[in-house]
């Protein structure tokens, strides 16, 4: 890979300052960015590690729900969110593999917004709020298509706040090689309605399946989804599955998530 200067600030303010340099890029757990740089598909001149910033780490239950620091590794979320938000903890515990989970972070995953990543489904499905150094962004506004987000130049995610639903579940069907989501569904039942978020399936990245939300808000049971059909238009087609196959998975996994919700 191309060479760069490595800096590791210990505060958000210092990180933002370091990122204002020409060619600077933020590095969180690096589980995606490092391989990308090895392929020379990214070539920052300054790499700003966010892993040394204590104020960006941790899982904490507050009035608005569960707040997770952006630099918190998946393994920590899997453990510490378990008693507050088991579906989210399960999602975090199923990303990558244990070594990846010890490094990869929620902030890094959301900033990258891979169309097959798990966290976007959890965040959108929960209606969470993405907190940055500048503002708070509702999940519905944050995800703007494959690898595209509402983040602006120099803006870094500092944390995410999740409202805690009555019931929720995440069901992931692995792409057999990468073990990213071939398709995965996050279902969350709140007092005022149900949210269903799908990752891995669409060319537009994570999306909400509004018909299912409507049906499930009326009757929260797998059978409520049975009569719905999912269009394969806009679904990803690749070696691992056709658009029609992914459309099928959306429905099957939604039913399974509803059945598994706790």
């Amino acid at each position: 890979m191309h060479n760069f200067d490595f800096v590791k600030p210990s505060s958000i303010a210092d990180a933002v300052k370091a990122l204002s340099k020409e060619g600077a890029q933020a590095l969180s757990g690096g589980q995606t960015l490092t391989p990308t740089m090895k392929q020379r598909l990214a070539a920052p001149t300054v790499l700003v590690s966010l892993t040394g910033i204590d104020e960006m780490k941790g899982v904490c239950l507050g009035e608005d729900g569960l707040s997770i620091g952006a630099a918190t590794p998946h393994a920590v979320v899997a453990k510490e969110a378990a008693k507050h938000y088991p579906a989210l903890a399960m999602l975090a515990g199923g990303i990558g593999d244990p070594a990846v989970r010890n490094r990869g972070t929620i902030g890094g995953s959301l900033a990258n917004n891979d169309p097959a990543a798990c966290y976007p489904a959890g965040v959108l499905g929960s209606g969470a709020t993405v907190v940055t150094n500048r503002r708070k962004i509702a999940a519905d506004d944050y995800f703007q298509g494959m690898f595209t987000t509402a983040l602006e130049e120099g803006e870094i995610i500092t944390g995410v706040t999740f409202p805690i639903p009555e019931k929720a579940a995440y069901v992931k069907f692995n792409q057999p090689a990468s073990r990213f989501a071939l398709t995965a569904v996050f279902v969350a039942k709140f007092k005022d309605g149900v949210r269903v978020a799908v990752t891995g399936a669409s060319n537009d990245g994570v999306f909400r399946w509004s018909e299912a939300e409507k049906a499930l808000s009326g009757h929260f049971a797998a059978s409520a989804v049975e009569g719905l059909s999912v269009s394969s238009d806009g679904m990803i087609g690749d070696l691992h599955g056709t658009p029609a196959y992914r459309a099928n998975l959306v429905k099957v996994l939604t039913k399974r998530a509803v059945a598994a919700a706790q």
């Binding site: 090689a177 990468s178 073990r179 070696l239 691992h240």
Partner: peptide, 16 residues
Amino acid sequence: LLTASYMDYAMPRADD
């Protein structure tokens, strides 16, 4: 080659 890394070439893993 569409399967030029372990991201797309599915190797058997312990849980397969």
